[in-house]
Nucleic acid binder design. Structure first.
Lengths: 210, 210
DNA sequence: GCAGTTTTTTGCGCGCCCCGCAATTTTGCT
DNA sequence: AGCAAAATTGCGGGGCGCGCAAAAAACTGC
């Protein structure tokens, strides 16, 4: 047995696979934004990257999945971002800060891209796939929360917290898409703070009405 | 203008359409549970109800959508359940009670059905479609919450609350599916209460660890 | 009831998608 | 260089989703 590298050092093979996957995902998103979902065939994505259509389906089982792969890719960053928060920090603060940190990267989207994306999400299949991507991230986030909260924490509660975070992200994102040039981050944070406090503003509104 | 019925009295046509849709949805779910998703073709569902395959696609754009239609069908009941809560009731209580009331109907599932469903949800497409169905219900719930909270409420906060409720529902359901014969309702309510209080248990766990 | 209008159902056809399989090529290692 | 493991590819097939136009069915006013 040769000395075994601990964590990374993925073999060259793995790295090429990862690169191919990423290239396909990026190409899929790019092309979808450029020409719209219906004018995009799997064949196009494949040839853009220089592989056969069959190979595309070795990496993704649908073009929708490829397009949404950039969301799933946040997985690792989410986990690491939460791990990196100082351990004294209250859980909610840590989660909020971690979420904020790594959603900074949202940028790099033309105004037209945003419009295109809004249109594309009218498509049921793509929308569904996007939700699935979020669910995947949610699972990882839940694990990270469990890890941080320690063994005594109820795993279901951790999942719930992760679910809340994903809801906030989804809703803020959607709002950002729809309302032209609103901003994403402030809304995201606001929703998280609201949730962490038990949605007092709504309760107050209801009380005022009574 | 003849006297116009206020709410219902859908013409015969509408009612037949609704019936057909429901029949197709039910048949789809039933058949999927019986033989599994991969052994189910659109043609089967159609012929079970006695219509042409082409007609099936006039009602649903995929078999997955048909299978999940029972979730979307809760829409109206959710809305009505929330409207029916006494107006003095605090918002969270009203939402929780409304959600509880109408998720009572979850029943009517064999032990085998549950297993089958768990297997079926391994299928990415079906899982995605289920999330989409939940998202649809979430939207309606958000409207109902807005209505109840009054004009002053922030619509985004309403959406957030609806998102939290759906997360709880989804997570409790998933837990119920996986853990054999756990119960759904208690978990659901517990998660909602936890969320309405800002997830104190997790925060406490983290604090204890420090 | 009956003629006319609207709506729904249906068959047909097309393009695309997803995947299993087996042959081929590439890669990593010694 | 040579070998074993793994990735890519072509082929073929079953199925799906939908546009279109014809046929059938349901409602309308008389």
């Amino acid at each position: 047995m040769t000395s075994e590298p601990v964590a990374p050092a993925l073999g060259l093979r793995e790295r090429k696979k990862l690169a191919a996957r990423q290239a396909l995902g990026t190409a899929a998103l790019r092309l979808a934004l450029d020409r719209g979902l219906d004018r995009l065939r799997v064949e196009d994505i494949a040839s853009e990257v220089g592989v056969s259509p069959r190979t595309f389906n070795n990496y993704f089982s649908s073009k929708e999945e490829a397009i949404c792969s950039f969301i799933v890719a946040q997985q690792e960053r989410v986990r690491e971002a939460l791990r990196a928060r100082p351990s004294g920090e209250p859980l909610w603060e840590a989660v909020i800060n971690a979420a904020v940190e790594q959603s900074d990267r949202e940028g790099r989207l033309t105004r037209e891209d945003v419009l295109r994306m809004r249109d594309m999400l009218q498509n049921a299949g793509l929308f569904a796939e996007m939700l699935r991507a979020h669910a995947t991230v949610e699972r990882v986030l839940a694990e990270a929360v469990t890890e941080r909260a320690g063994g005594g924490a109820n795993p279901l509660h951790a999942r719930m917290l992760a679910g809340i975070v994903q809801s906030a992200s989804r809703i803020a994102f959607h709002h950002w898409l729809v309302s032209g040039r609103g901003e994403f981050l402030p809304t995201f944070v606001e929703l998280l703070r609201e949730a962490s406090a038990g949605m007092p503003s709504l309760t107050a509104a209801a009380a005022a009405r009574t």
